[in-house]
């Protein structure tokens, strides 16, 4: 509370959840997750550089349940951040700010994320089992 008792601006929790704000928050959250995921990528590369034993250990981890969940989360975060990043780049050109277009683009990003993740895992799993 400010000492002078001046009114404070309303905080996050008083606002109703809506697609636009959720997507904005998710863009940051997936960005942070992908930054952490980069550690996994570098670990994979370093293990491959060290030798077959350490590479096999990484492969075993990535093939385990925890590894697959991490990879799935990583792919979902990547495709979301990618699609929504394109939406941001479009906004950067000064276009697409009408409310109708903001929502249409938002739903397109949701659909694109689900479709790309489904395709990647569909192809990946069929490749893996063959």
């Amino acid at each position: 509370m400010s000492p002078a008792g001046r009114p404070l601006s309303p905080h996050l929790q008083v606002y109703r959840w809506q697609l636009t704000s959720v997507m904005s928050i998710l863009h940051r959250a997936t960005g942070i997750a992908l930054s952490v995921g980069t550690i996994l990528l570098v670990w994979w590369l370093v293990a491959a550089a060290v030798g077959p034993k350490s590479y096999a250990r990484v492969q075993a981890f990535l093939g385990s349940w925890i590894g697959i969940i991490l990879l799935f989360g990583w792919s979902l975060a990547l495709f979301y951040h990618l699609c929504n990043g394109l939406r941001h780049l479009w906004w950067d050109t000064g276009r697409g700010f009408e409310l109708r277009h903001v929502y249409a683009g938002g739903w397109a990003v949701v659909a694109g994320t689900i479709a790309l993740t489904a395709i990647a895992w569909g192809v990946g799993l069929s490749q893996w089992s063959s």
Binding site: A56, Q59, G124
Partner: peptide, 8 residues
């Protein structure tokens, strides 16, 4: 995806 499960 193309490397899924590939060895070293």
């Amino acid at each position: 995806i193309r490397l899924a499960g590939a060895d070293l």
